[in-house]
Design a protein around this nucleic acid. Structure first.
Lengths: 247, 247
DNA sequence: CCATGGTTCATGGTATACCAGATTGCGAAA
DNA sequence: TTTCGCAATCTGGTATACCATGAACCATGG
């Protein structure tokens, strides 16, 4: 048919609310919420005509974001992007530790040798020196490594929940990973983890992963003020009856 | 000021959608979804005029239920209560194991002696013999015991997620706990867990909790067909791009 | 100038109307 | 009798209008 009309990948069961949800979510994720002066306000009507659609899909998207803890919607006051408190961040890291260490255990039991080889490939991509030099790239590889462990658990639910946590932690991570001194320790940890999984030592793998993650926990706790700045450091976010959910 | 006006705490910011959500959720939970012939269909409009309100709050409630994996909403087809597959149930138990074992670890570090004493009280409420005799009551105490461990972790997020999982598992639990042979093993396990936490042995406590929960995992896997009946045993629910989320 | 009370406005909650896709059932044709 | 097709209808998605409640502002009186 020669030149086609080039109609977008077409909305295979495309729905507005889904799309809006993604748009808003990524917007929030790419926002530096731990910076005073950033506007945390979101107005349904404003968004509605900015995007040229009605309020309904936007409300649905916002509701979902609230459910997931990204925004805080106060009746008759407004919708506000939520700034996670130190304690919330720390709790997320604890849960992350629980999930990933269990994932490592499962990986020892269920992963094939080929899959573990792939994990090694990811883990050895960067040496200690290069990790220091090209921090941002290493950061990406670092994430890949951890996601790989989750995948090797063959437990979808673990991946899903951890992914959700990760989304929340991203904003903090961006600010926290400046510290180069942590990079080489990280590389060493990863190597030990790989070796434990290769040896199918579930108990050891679990322990190493847990301790690795809990080091991030300790680090964040120590340097929270540095990360978010003095002014915001002790702001406790709204109590919240919140949320966290599962399939 | 002498006698005050005594006005009721008033529905502190009572909202329809919240209420509807609770109503629907408890309805679903109390429904025997693993029984052929139960109607899994939910219609927005029908519910709307049954409850005498408009579709909007109902849609919001249903959306949330979908997000949490309780229902499956198929555009222009209908909303259906979701029947969890064996694999989904097993994955939930794995995550539960990860969370509660981490909770046990945290309890060793952060719980006070008094709190641990409370745990012992709950755990020793039923002896092996009585547990067999009064199964349904023991079941309640059993739940209390595990929730107590979660609480002792002082990690809100763990409690929240686990609670969510528990809601999903309830339907299965109801059918699975008939087996009296598992009760005495359970009581013994609990005692060992209590002792480990009292001894502040984080590693041991974690291991015992994990293994205790994974025994449920193994049991469910073995007896799934018995639990849900032959007919439903191998129905795979819709693939689902699902969900699971966090604060 | 300050305190009190009311009016206006902004904003999320709810109701309703309309749209489009999917199902279902019936009737006509083979 | 079976099969195909069309139309009535059911159902979730979207748009829009209205409601109720806090907040902000203003006016009035001390």
């Amino acid at each position: 048919m020669g030149t086609q009309l080039e109609l977008k990948p077409v909305n295979g069961s495309f729905s507005l609310k889904e799309h809006i949800y993604d748009v808003l979510k990524t917007s929030i994720m790419n926002l530096d919420i731990y910076d005073e002066g950033t506007n945390l306000r979101m107005d349904e009507r404003t968004l509605a005509d900015q995007l040229g659609i009605s309020r309904t899909p936007i409300r649905e998207a916002i509701m979902r974001l609230e459910q997931e803890g990204f925004v805080d919607i106060q009746p008759r006051r407004g919708v506000f992007i939520r700034r996670k408190s130190l304690n919330e961040i720390l709790e997320m890291i604890v849960v992350w530790a629980a999930l990933e260490s269990m994932a490592a255990r499962m990986a020892c039991l269920h992963a094939t040798d080929e899959e573990i080889a792939e994990l090694r490939r990811l883990g050895t991509k960067y040496t200690k020196d290069r990790a220091k030099a090209e921090l941002s790239e290493y950061s990406e590889a670092n994430i890949e490594f951890h996601l790989c462990i989750l995948r090797l658990s063959k437990t979808r639910l673990i991946e899903t929940i951890a992914q959700g946590l990760f989304t929340h932690l991203k904003a903090v991570r961006r600010k926290a990973l400046r510290d180069t001194s942590r990079a080489d320790r990280s590389v060493v940890d990863h190597m030990h983890i790989i070796e434990a999984i290769e040896a199918r030592d579930a108990g050891l793998a679990e322990e190493l992963v847990r301790e690795h993650t809990m080091r991030l926990h300790a680090y964040i706790r120590r340097s929270w003020k540095f990360i978010v700045g003095e002014a915001l450091a002790d702001q406790s976010t709204t109590p919240q009856t919140e949320s966290l959910q599962e399939t």
